[in-house]
Each structure stands twice: as C-alpha cells, then as structure tokens.
Design a protein around this nucleic acid. Structure first.
Lengths: 123, 123
DNA sequence: CGCGTGCATCGATGACTGTCAATACTAAAG
DNA sequence: CTTTAGTATTGACAGTCATCGATGCACGCG
C-alpha cells in the first residue's frame, strides 16, 4: 500500500474509508506496462478476492443489498473472529462498506470499485 | 481445485492446459450466492492475480503479444526460478498460455479468460 | 448501574507462499 | 558426442495468512 492510499485503521464502531481513486485511475492491463507501485495496489485488491470465504461473503452481500455481520457467521460456517477478520480485509480493499447501526454492523458492496477492477482486466 | 478443473501437471516442455469453462460458466457475483466449489475455483484465479510480480508479468505479456521467459527476468528483477514459478501459476490459472519454440518459452495471454473474470465482477 | 449481546482485537498455531541457490532436463550448435 | 544455453524442478528458509479461543469494548435494555 502506497502513500496514495489512505486506509484509516479501523477503530471500533468507526467506518473504514478508502481512496477509491487508487483503482479508478488505473488502465487496462494490456494498455501499458504496470509500475511496481500500481502493481502493489492492485495486487492488494485481488488478494482480498483470493479467498473462498471472502468471495462467498461478497456474493452474499451483493445478492442482498445489506447484510449484517451476524448473518454471515452461520452460512459461512466460520467463527465470529474469522468473519470479522474477513470483513475487515474486504473493507480495507474498498470492496464493501460498513455501517454500524445500534449493536449491529451492516455491510454493502461498493459497486463502482468492482466495476473499476473489471475494467482493469479489460472487460 | 475441484474435479471440474483439469490441470495437467506441467511436465517439462509440455504445455499446461486448463478447462476454461470453469470460469466461463460462472455468474456475476451479485446474481446468486456462490457455492463453496465455485468460490474455490474463482479464488484460485484471483490468487494468481494477487502478486505484484505476476501482475507486472501479465501486463508485459498483454502489452506485447508474445513474450519470451528470458525477456521477463531482467525487467522484473527476479531470478530465473522465480520467473518460472510465476509463469507456471499464471498458466495454471488459465491466464496465460505457453508454447515452446526451440529453447525458448513464449507466453501469450488468454483474453477470453480475462473477460470471463471481469464478467464475474459485474462488468 | 449491572447485564447481555454483537463486534473488534490479541495471541497462538498450522498452513501456505515468494524467493533463490543448486541441480536436472531439453534442445540446438559445434 | 560434447558443449552451451534456456527452462523446469527441488529443497530450504523467511514471511504471510487463515483460523479460533480468550478477552476487551460499545451499545441497548431492564
């Protein structure tokens, strides 16, 4: 992660914010050769997508419009700390956005960012 | 990796072949919730994309139409075994296709597969 | 206030990964 | 056949990651 990317370390009950331009700026993979910095930034996003549990999480969150953390634990068959770990990684990659409502944490996808990544792949 | 995916273990001077339908079949991430098997297959592909060196490799191969293994070692500043390791992972993920010509190994991208992945992300 | 609940963090652990030196393999050239 | 050059494989090592129990923190309720 370079200085361009502002990831606020997630204090409790606060929302992770990510600079979406990091990806929005980048060109399709075939157009120009990638710099080391670009490659590192993009790799972090693909890294967030490289785990089966996180992919299923993202799929669940994208299918419904809002999903509570508590609703992920059961279907994914993972412990609560593990769920929290994965939501954090997806959020730090800018793929989902969290909002605290009362005792519950609600997640939704960041569709622009998914589109930006798709564009990098030349879609 | 499930039984659906046929990855021929790479014997020397032979070409890695991958069943491209594994991804071509799959729906956008928001349409239906992903099965465990689907998630594992797709995660393997994103895993191949989650390394900066491999991303730059893919970018170089996509920029030119054909690239020799020997032409990657210098610009990427990695040892020959490391280059071979990364090309193998990209090939096993079906992202690049290798062909031996004489003593040289030439790589090209598999554009349909990049498009299929982009489509999964909702592009 | 005290209690219960949902989530985040810490610490530990087993598994995986990127890297390279050494080595084996293959194909062309002498 | 011997040599040379490009690539693949092996083995080892350090770093990273997924997972979960234990614990801490924040919120709402009685």
């Amino acid at each position: 992660m370079t200085v361009n990317t502002k990831v606020v370390p997630m204090a409790q009950h606060k929302t992770i914010t990510v600079d979406a331009d990091v990806v929005a700026c980048c060109s399709p993979i075939a157009s120009v050769e990638m710099s080391e910095a670009e490659a590192s930034d993009i790799a972090q996003i693909f890294s967030a997508l490289s785990d089966p549990v996180r992919l299923r999480m993202l799929s669940m969150i994208a299918s419904e419009s809002q999903v509570c953390s508590c609703a992920l634990e059961g279907p994914l068959a993972k412990s609560q700390p593990t769920i929290s770990h994965h939501t954090r990684i997806l959020a730090e990659a800018g793929l989902i956005i969290g909002e605290r409502r009362g005792r519950w944490m609600w997640w939704r996808v960041a569709p622009e960012r998914l589109g930006a990544i798709a564009r990098i792949l030349g879609g």
